[in-house]
């Protein structure tokens, strides 16, 4: 059994409850156990950093300090140094604080001075901060995930939406690519879903602009929804509460703004995993989304034939071959130099 510390983040308890519920539902079949960081606090999202530097990093670092304390109290068997954050913004903030405290030692010193006022300390580099999907793809593995599928999502066309803060800036080189990472695609394929080619997979959902500059945000949401719709997606799959919130809760207002009538549901990838593992929608927070996924999910079960690439000699007006795609091994080796 794999055990990790969990930093849920504020959204998981409110706007992204469906994420929390569905995450919990897939723990058991995948042999995973998460232990929550006791008394964790908000990571500050993108707001704290724009006001003051040291308080922003101290706020984040309190969580790292609590986590490393908690590890110290664990017994040898279940000990871990990995903190799992299911929210991309939380993941980035935790990872960033850990990284910058090392890159700029003076920041580490000051943050520790602040932590000391609360009786805490954190030695940068102690923890390994990782996102939920990282754990699922690289620790649990696609084989095991594929093995747990009892209701393949055949026929469901999914736009894989990774968002920004997960693959970038990627201080620890965890992802196959910063722009077009394949981890979510691979995972969705393992569930049997038809993954559409979605070039905007790591484009921005607007972040906090829905709050402070809605028109800017609406345009960003429109681009994502319009392209997914254009390419025939039944729904989008996300790994981040903020992305889900912006695309789901603001889609209606965006439609008003542009006079459009898109209906593009967006679910957490864990909800799709739960479905594929045979769990019922009610157990996975399905139905909590404002742009409902009912029609989209009605399609599950449809078989789509797999097409093969043509090969052989080139006839006069036949297309020219594409460059060879990198193998999985090469992707890890090349992209992350």
């Amino acid at each position: 059994m794999n055990k990790y510390l969990l930093y849920p983040g504020c959204s998981m308890e409110s706007s992204a409850k469906a994420y929390m519920e569905s995450m919990n539902a897939i723990m058991e079949p995948l042999d995973l156990r998460f232990e929550e960081i006791e008394d964790w606090n908000c990571c500050g999202a993108t707001e704290y950093l724009g006001i003051n530097l040291i308080p922003a990093y101290s706020l984040i670092a309190r969580n790292l300090a609590l986590a490393s304390d908690q590890i110290g109290r664990m017994n040898g068997m279940g000990r871990t140094r990995t903190v799992v954050a299911p929210c991309s913004a939380c993941y980035l903030n935790l990872a960033k604080a850990d990284y910058y405290m090392q890159e700029r030692p003076s920041l580490g010193v000051k943050v520790n001075e602040a932590l000391a006022a609360g009786g805490l300390q954190y030695k940068p580099g102690t923890l390994d901060v990782r996102h939920l999907i990282d754990i699922l793809v690289y620790d649990v593995g696609l084989e095991k995930i594929r093995g747990s599928v009892t209701r393949p999502l055949h026929g469901l066309k999914v736009a894989p939406y990774m968002g920004c803060m997960l693959p970038r800036p990627d201080y620890q080189h965890r992802w196959s690519d910063h722009e077009h990472p394949t981890e979510l695609d691979d995972l969705l394929r393992a569930l049997g879903a038809e993954v559409i080619d979605y070039p905007l997979t790591t484009s921005c959902c607007g972040g906090h602009m829905t709050q402070i500059g809605p028109e800017t945000a609406f345009e960003l949401i429109r681009r994502l929804v319009a392209d997914a719709d254009d390419r025939g997606a039944d729904l989008m799959a996300t790994v981040c509460p903020m992305c889900q919130m912006n695309i789901d809760a603001y889609q209606n207002e965006m439609n008003h703004h542009f006079g459009t009538d898109y209906h593009m549901p967006i679910l957490f990838f864990t909800q799709l995993m739960g479905l594929a593992f045979g769990r019922e929608p009610g157990e996975l927070g399905i139905g909590m989304e404002l742009v409902n996924a009912r029609n989209a999910l009605a399609r599950i079960g449809v078989e789509v034939p797999i097409t093969q690439e043509p090969s052989g000699p080139r006839k006069k007006d036949e297309g020219l071959p594409m460059p060879r795609r990198w193998t999985r091994h090469e992707v890890r080796k090349e992209a992350v130099k």
Binding site: I54, P55, Y57, S58, K110, V111, A114, L120
Partner: peptide, 18 residues
Amino acid sequence: IRRMDQLKAILERASQLE
């Protein structure tokens, strides 16, 4: 959170350091 006092102390000190 349970230990709000602790967080406050940390943030206060952090603001001074800022």
